[in-house]
């Protein structure tokens, strides 16, 4: 099996060798997902050919499902998708990876202990209605639009661009206002919050929260209240607990180990 590398899923606190059952590893092969322990920590890995895993649904879901399986029993530091140690890296080499950052990994795991990452996205239900509001709330946009109406497209090109910029800015202000309103209801319950980039014109909020598991029910309630109050206007997408990707960002430089 010399040509086999090791696919890395996550780092956990586990002092011994073990396998994780009821889960299919990357590559859909009949091989175990197992730990490589060192100094109280473990890498969770499976044998894998050294290859660039394409970002297909099957590959990404396989990666995610292994993490969700491990998460049932352990706090974990998730490793970025597609990380494969080449066959030249021995078990001792993998242990060295843990060894060099052992304190930092222990500290990060302690930070995550007893907490869950939750994800909340909010999207405007009706884009057209939002543009109508932008018009209603911004007389200057309305006036400029009316002054351009019916004129030849070439003649109003530059002013049309200016109008579009004004609309875009107004939409962004509106988005930020509504995002702040939503965040005000849930952020106080979280230990940490991370706002990610919104995608498309409908998305108002794309945020991740690190929440004490003892307060997860309280967070659920807050999201429920948001939905009850704003559900006509906003669609909410709520996930969790998810692997804490939004609160673990570190680079280990293998070549300098």
């Amino acid at each position: 099996m010399d040509s086999q590398g090791k696919y890395l899923y996550c780092i956990i606190r586990c002092p011994h060798e073990r396998t994780f059952d009821s889960v299919t590893p990357m590559g859909n092969m009949p091989v175990p997902v197992f730990t490589v322990p060192h100094d109280g920590l473990s890498l969770v890995v499976s044998d894998s050919p050294v290859q660039q895993y394409e970002t297909t649904r099957a590959h990404m879901m396989a990666h995610e499902r292994v993490l969700e399986r491990v998460m049932k029993e352990h706090s974990l530091l998730p490793v970025r998708f597609g990380t494969v140690a080449d066959p030249g890296v021995t078990i001792q080499g993998l242990q060295k990876l843990l060894q060099t950052r052992v304190q930092e990994f222990h500290q990060l795991l302690a930070d995550i202990d007893g907490k869950a990452e939750l994800g909340l996205k909010a999207l405007w239900q009706d884009e057209k209605a939002i543009f109508s509001e932008v018009l209603a709330e911004n007389p200057s946009i309305r006036r400029l639009r009316d002054s351009l109406a019916g004129r030849p497209a070439q003649a109003v090109r530059y002013e049309g661009i200016r109008l579009g910029q004004m609309v875009k800015d107004a939409l962004e202000r509106k988005r930020k206002g509504e995002a702040a309103h939503i965040l005000a209801q849930v952020q106080p319950i979280a230990v940490r919050t991370r706002e990610n980039v919104v995608v498309g014109d409908r998305m108002v909020l794309n945020a991740a929260f690190l929440v004490e598991t003892t307060r997860e029910g309280e967070f659920d309630q807050a999201v429920r209240r948001l939905e009850q109050g704003l559900g006509q206007r906003l669609a909410f997408k709520y996930v969790g607990p998810v692997p804490p990707y939004n609160f673990v960002n570190i680079v280990v430089n293998w070549e300098r180990l």
């Binding site: 996550c10 780092i11 050294v50 970025r80 494969v84 140690a85």
Partner: peptide, 10 residues
């Protein structure tokens, strides 16, 4: 996001 191991296949 998450832990990055530099210089390994990604």
């Amino acid at each position: 996001k998450g832990v990055v191991v530099d210089a390994w296949v990604r």
